[in-house]
Structure formats: structure tokens, C-alpha cells
């Protein structure tokens, strides 16, 4: 077990260590009972080597909502998602998907990794990437070519993200936004209930951003839940119902209207006031308009 005393932390950035406001995270009390929550994280700590990356996360995701995971660089947003999916080992804590461990609920979780995590020069076309979302369902040893219905399902998913015309295109010949949509289609084809997306809006064109937002709203309409790592502070309240503010610890979580405040942002982002003042200003304007 890892000792959580600050003396053990090797590379703790000074300004973060001195953050005074690590009292109780402000978690929405109206959240559903943990057993029925799409994602419930209990007391989770993740460490790389001996350096804790995220500490003591307690979180219950609301059902049928779009949740933005927001925090500065190095806040552990990607790590949080990877730890939920078991891609990085947890130092402590427990994660449950709809009341059961992730290993028993894999088919109910769709994962959209960061676009940069793969080599887009790989000899494969868009349709084949989407089919990968069905490999688990197809099972061991069986070649994909035996199942035309899976191909149809993959084409449908591509259609949903507006990429049907690009099904046969080699993935390196797609724009960044199109590549992102292919990744999204790969998760959609699984027909999961909970979606975990790592920066789907990073470096995409306006058309893709709109396509992703549409898909997210579709998902919400059909009662699905999505947790999305999001870095564009200006669009958080427009795109998402809930927000999860993260900076190594859970700073605050809850509905966007009540939780996504300048004060909480300040707590999350610490000393980076210049950005915050800008964002605070923008948000004041947005609120004023409403």
C-alpha cells in the first residue's frame, strides 16, 4: 500500500502541494444509489511508480447524463479513465460499472481512446477499425469475413458519425477530425450503455465537433451515459449536463449549472489565474445572456 503522506511524493509540483482547499469535494447529493450508477468509483488512488497521480477519488456518475471531466494538464484525467478500464493498475479503491466490476461489464462500456494513442499509418481502412469494436462479440479465432451482419453494423456506426463515404479509405488519408469520428464509431458499434471518451474534441474541425455533439445528445436521449475528458472550458456548459472537476483529487462534481463555477474552476486550476479570469469573464457573459 502506498502511504499518502506528502513526504513520499517525489515530483509534487510546489503550487499544487500547497493548495489549501482539499477538504471535502463538493459532490452532488442527488446522485443515484451507487449500485445502479453507471460508474461508481470508490476511494480510488492510482500511482505511477511511487508518485500518486490521482488520489482518493469518490464518484458516482449520474445515469443518462453527459459528464465532462475537466482539469489542467497532468490532473490525471486520462489516468482516471484508464484506471476505470483496468489499463493502469489501481493502488487502492474499487470501481463498479452498473453495480458490478468492470471485468463483468466490458460489453456495456464503450471506450474512445486519445487519437494520438495509435499509429494512423497502420494498413487498415476506416470500416476495419470500426469492426474492431465488435471483435469481442465475434470471439476468438473466427474471421470477421464470416459475419456480414457485423460489417453492416459497422457501416451503420460509420453512417451515424457521417463517415459512410469513407468506409474504404485508408486511415492515414483521413483528416484528424475524421479519424476521431472513426474512433467514436468504433465505440458506438458496441452499443454500450456507458461511454468513456478521452479528449474526443482535441484538434478536430468544426464539422466533427458538431457531429460528436450530436452523437452525444443522441446517446443521452437513448438513456446512455458518457464521461468525456474535455479541455475546452468555454463549451463545457453548452455541451454537458454534469461536470467533474479534477486535479489529482476530485475538486467538485455535479450538475454544470451549480458546479461549474468560477470558484470551483479556480480551485481546480490553482495558480493559473490568467486563464481563469478569461474563462470567468466568458462565463459571466454567457450567464448574463441566459
Amino acid at each position: 500500500m502506498l502511504s499518502k503522506s506528502p513526504n513520499d511524493i517525489v515530483d509534487e509540483p510546489g503550487d499544487l502541494a500547497e493548495e489549501p482547499q482539499v477538504e471535502d469535494p463538493i459532490v452532488d447529493e442527488t446522485a443515484e444509489h451507487p449500485s445502479s450508477s453507471p460508474l461508481s468509483i470508490h476511494d480510488m488512488t492510482v500511482a505511477y511508480h511511487r508518485t500518486p497521480v490521482i488520489w482518493d477519488i469518490d464518484y458516482n456518475a449520474p445515469r443518462g447524463k453527459l459528464v465532462a471531466i475537466v482539469g489542467p494538464n497532468g490532473a490525471g484525467k486520462t489516468t482516471l479513465i484508464k484506471a476505470v478500464l483496468g489499463l493502469v493498475p489501481k493502488a487502492s479503491g474499487r470501481v463498479q460499472i452498473y453495480g458490478k466490476p468492470y471485468k463483468k461489464q466490458r460489453s456495456r462500456v464503450g471506450y474512445v481512446p486519445q487519437r494520438e494513442s495509435v499509429d494512423w499509418d497502420f494498413p487498415i481502412n476506416a470500416l476495419e477499425v470500426v469492426m474492431m469494436g465488435l471483435y469481442r462479440e465475434i470471439g476468438w479465432f473466427k474471421p470477421i469475413s464470416l459475419f456480414p451482419r457485423y460489417r453492416e453494423a459497422a457501416l451503420d456506426a460509420l453512417r451515424r458519425v457521417g463517415m459512410a463515404d469513407y468506409a474504404r479509405r485508408q486511415i492515414s488519408q483521413l483528416s484528424g477530425g475524421q479519424q476521431q469520428r472513426v474512433f467514436l464509431a468504433r465505440a458506438l458499434v458496441q452499443d454500450a450503455d456507458l461511454y468513456l471518451m478521452d479528449e474526443p474534441f482535441a484538434g478536430v474541425d468544426a464539422a466533427t465537433e458538431r457531429a460528436i455533439v450530436d452523437i452525444l445528445r443522441d446517446l443521452r436521449t437513448s438513456g446512455k451515459t458518457a464521461l468525456v475528458v474535455h479541455h475546452d472550458l468555454q463549451t463545457v456548459s453548452e455541451y454537458f449536463d454534469h461536470v467533474m472537476l479534477l486535479n489529482m483529487r476530485l475538486v467538485a462534481a455535479g450538475p454544470t449549472e451549480t458546479t461549474y463555477t468560477t470558484e470551483n474552476l479556480r480551485k481546480t486550476y490553482g495558480g493559473k489565474l490568467a486563464i481563469l479570469d478569461q474563462v470567468g469573464h466568458i462565463m459571466t457573459i454567457q450567464r448574463g445572456e441566459k
Binding site: 471506450y111 499509429d119 474492431m132
Partner: peptide, 22 residues
């Protein structure tokens, strides 16, 4: 031939393969 699908997934996106339970 038997593991073609599995190997191609492994080579393309190891993290996703792992999240899928491979």
C-alpha cells in the same frame, strides 16, 4: 490465420484491445 483478427487489434491499438478484455 487463426489469430489474425486478434494480432491486428494488438498491433493497432493495444490499449483498446486490453480494455475490451483481450
Amino acid at each position: 490465420v487463426g489469430l489474425f483478427k486478434e494480432f491486428s487489434l494488438l498491433c493497432f491499438d493495444e490499449g483498446y484491445a486490453s480494455a475490451q478484455g483481450w
